[in-house]
Design a protein around this nucleic acid. Structure first.
Lengths: 202, 202
DNA sequence: TCCGTAACCTACTACTCCGTAACTTACGCA
DNA sequence: TGCGTAAGTTACGGAGTAGTAGGTTACGGA
């Protein structure tokens, strides 16, 4: 993997490569199941190099998680930042599923269990937390109880991420199809579920 | 734990005790993080006894998971088995949250990652699978595309379980309160969200 | 062309933990 | 009361792996 006659890389390049390789391996095996040795091997180097750059297994993991978290939050935030409410729901749902499709490794890491000392049971719970804060502002403006915002944020993140995981293992349906069903459920609820959800534009 | 002067137990009693102790430890530490030794220690016996009864770590885990899975499926199934559609949604939501409250260890096990060889990324995905089959039948009867049923089943399970996990760490709101918000979201959608969801009758 | 340093390696320590072999103890039945 | 067997124990093999000590190589500037 990126092994052209055991080329020496600059510190910055090696660091970037290790982050990428690490993301792949952590996604495949989870934190506990990953051996630092394997990351090193796949990067075409030996173990101490990893320790040189990141201090240890958790150091590398932390960097990877942090980057991925920012990416997701940014993706969701920008999707719900403008438009009519219904459009925001559509956009956010589709954006999240697109993230799942285009960054399967990062999504796997966020979905899987975090190492026990990290404070959060699931990394996605923190995403829900951050989205909850955004919701609270909107709720206040719309006259709803902002205290209830976290419930809805967690609910929607849980819904979309769970379906995303399911879709990862069974891609028989198109991403737009899944997204339109999901946002129909979010917006109209089971009560007014359309027989055939309207296709989303884009 | 259940250690009254190192009492000898019958095979059946010891087995039952180990299942209970194992559930606690697996919930606390996850599958990988759990040492068979610790289960034995907490049960007041030595390691080989566990191997005697369950063949190994995975054997015990399998029994625990299987029992918990059946319990959840049964809980959900019976909650959605009768009543008006809206009532079914209410009942299922509340029932699931009550399960989360009353069986925190079992819920933790179902939520956490399964050992990689188990075929399912998350045990809850299998719950979603089973609920999806039930939904498909209902969908067909109501004139909806039964192919879409899995999406909705995964979505609802994901939503409720994710909120359940969140609620486990922050119990400042009553279970009925959370349930009523959730089922309002499921049923009416964000579009017709009531300012104050109606309290569910017990 | 020579050398300082950044990049990298080999080889190890120290530990955890699954699973098993071989042995011991106590309960209850004839 | 003595003994057969179920219940339980100690002690170890062996695999895997985080992290480190100390040495080696090659790139690039003077």
């Amino acid at each position: 993997m990126t092994d052209r006659t055991r080329q020496r890389l600059s510190a910055a390049d090696r660091r970037a490569q290790l982050i990428e390789v690490g993301r792949t391996v952590f996604a495949e095996r989870g934190f506990d199941g990953t051996a630092v040795e394997e990351i090193a091997e796949r990067a075409g180097i030996s173990k101490p190099v990893v320790y040189e750059h990141f201090g240890g297994k958790e150091g590398l993991y932390a960097v990877i998680v942090d980057r991925e978290m920012e990416l997701v939050i940014e993706t969701i935030s920008s999707a719900i930042s403008e438009g009519l409410p219904r459009e925001r729901v559509d956009a956010a749902t589709l954006a999240f599923l697109v993230y799942v499709r285009d960054h399967p490794d990062g999504f796997a890491i966020l979905s899987h269990d975090a190492p026990s000392n990290s404070g959060y049971a699931s990394l996605l719970a923190e995403v829900g937390d951050r989205v909850g804060k955004i919701f609270a502002t909107e709720f206040k403006r719309a006259g709803y109880d902002p205290k209830a915002a976290p419930i809805y944020a967690q609910a929607l993140i849980g819904m979309v991420s769970f379906v995303g995981q399911w879709w990862t293992d069974d891609r028989s349906r198109s991403i737009e199809d899944v997204a339109s069903h999901l946002s129909a459920l979010c917006w109209m609820g089971l009560r007014h579920l359309p027989k055939k959800p309207t296709k989303l534009k884009k």
